[in-house]
Amino acid sequence: MVKTTSKDAQDLFRALRSAYAATPTNLKIIDLYIVFAIMTAVIQVVYVGIVGSFPFNSFLSGVLSCVGTAVLAVCLRIQVNKENKEFKDLPPERAFADFVLCNVVLHLVIMNFIG
């Protein structure tokens, strides 16, 4: 049972990797960016577990800035993904402009909130 599961898992990972290899480069860049953001968020959460949540606003803005970045990047990824039929009529340039706007708002808020 365990063996089949692990075998399945291996198959799965292989399939996932091969499927993922087919992703276009720009999406891969986005993925990298997302991973970076999530890692930063995780580091901060671990840190807060160690030192406690005293400057709570800083913690909140720190983590939420990472989460926000990740979420926005996911949105961008969804929009520029050519396989996604829902956004055929949305040009990637427009999507990117929206993404930049959103990020600017996010980071302004973060700067306001962190201190």
């Binding site: 970076f36 030192v51 800083s58 720190g62 800035s65 962190i114």
Partner: peptide
């Protein structure tokens, strides 16, 4: 500028920096 909060500052600053880097890389790509 509380000392304990520096990692959070770092986190958000790195996000902002990351955003710029990403923008450049993405557009260049």
């Amino acid at each position: 500028f509380i000392t304990t909060a520096f990692p959070y500052y770092g986190g958000s600053v790195s996000m902002m920096a990351g955003f710029f880097v990403f923008t450049i890389v993405y557009l260049y790509n």
